[in-house]
């Protein structure tokens, strides 16, 4: 793939397929996500977007295909060889969930502290240094609280830091989940429908947050989204899926005018779609 060599892809998905019994959820999908860019994965309901996400973040083991993550320092990681928590710990891929999965009985601050588990585990000498209250542990703990405080400030929740996460309004929970994912200091941030259920004002502040993450942290972002205003506003690159295959990709403007995408979204049947395609090309 020549495009692959020119563009600097942090994530390259190659011929990814995922079958559940006889159902093909994702069929021979290939796409890339550029470094320090926002890539959107869109498509009608049931197109297989979340399945792709679950493959990338280690919740599913793909039937075939490869997913390569190229870190800034040059070392590559094949994501399909890692599983479970190692995707986040070693490959530095963080994710959020379509239906928010915060720790509702823990405070907003505690949620962000749990996210720094691996770094804090090392600092606490696998608990032993922490148990005796070693100075090095206290320094690390304070740094972790400061990082959490910074993120709470950025998502405008500093005054609710000590409230239970389950008590926060829906929009705040969405932003807190993103902040929690960012506290793992990821190279690639995967967001599953971050704007779902948000009103226009909350969507706008979400877009702002994502753009500032890209600008300040340099984190690459891959997101699934149905809210087209968010997708069009912040995406650098859009990949469109339908029935488990990629039907189009390109800049937001390019994708918006693509007849196949329009056909897929309008729910036209195959003949009509072909007719639309032919008339378009």
């Amino acid at each position: 793939m020549s495009a692959d060599q020119i563009l600097d892809h942090i994530l390259s998905v190659d011929h990814l397929s995922m079958r559940f019994g006889g159902i093909v959820a994702v069929n021979d999908l290939s796409f890339g996500a550029e470094r320090r860019k926002i890539t959107a994965l869109i498509g009608p309901n049931g197109a297989g977007k979340t399945t792709v996400f679950n493959c990338i973040t280690g919740f599913y083991k793909p039937t075939s295909g490869s997913m390569r993550l190229a870190h800034d320092d040059g070392h590559n990681i094949q994501l399909e060889r890692l599983n479970d928590f190692r995707i986040s710990k070693q490959a530095k891929v963080a994710r959020t969930f379509q239906n928010i999965r915060l720790f509702p009985g823990m405070t907003a601050l505690e949620n962000l502290m749990v996210a720094q588990h691996n770094a804090l585990m090392r600092a606490s000498g696998l608990t032993l240094l922490g148990l005796i209250g070693a100075p090095s542990w206290r320094v690390a703990e304070k740094a972790a609280i400061d990082l959490a405080r910074t993120w709470l400030e950025r998502i405008d929740l500093l005054d609710r830091a000590d409230d239970a996460a389950g008590n926060l309004p829906y929009g705040d929970q969405r932003r807190l989940e993103i902040a929690r994912a960012m506290c793992t200091e990821p190279a690639l941030l995967c967001l599953d429908e971050p704007a779902a259920g948000l009103n226009a004002r909350e969507s706008a502040s979400l877009s702002e947050l994502l753009l500032s993450i890209r600008a300040n942290q340099g984190t690459s972002i891959l997101l699934i989204e149905h809210d087209m205003s968010v997708v069009m506003e912040i995406s650098d690159h859009v990949v469109v899926m339908d029935y488990g295959v990629k039907i189009a990709e390109g800049t937001p403007q390019h994708v918006r005018d693509d007849p196949r995408v329009i056909a897929a979204y309008l729910g036209a049947d195959e003949e009509e779609a072909i007719a639309v395609m032919e008339s378009g090309t």
């Binding site: 973040t57 280690g58 919740f59 479970d84 928590f85 190692r86 995707i87 986040s88 710990k89 963080a94 994710r95 969930f97 999965r101 915060l102 720790f103 509702p104 009985g105 823990m106 505690e110 502290m113 749990v114 996210a115 720094q116 588990h117 691996n118 804090l120 585990m121 606490s124 608990t127 922490g130 148990l131 929690r180 994912a181 793992t184």
Partner: peptide, 26 residues
């Protein structure tokens, strides 16, 4: 003491949501 250390928080996080724990690299 353990409750205030990362291991204790991870225990409680595990009680709250195991899937989210895995997504956070625990």
């Amino acid at each position: 003491r353990l409750r205030r250390l990362p291991i204790g928080r991870a225990w409680e996080a595990l009680r709250e949501d195991e899937v989210a724990c895995r997504a956070l690299g625990i």
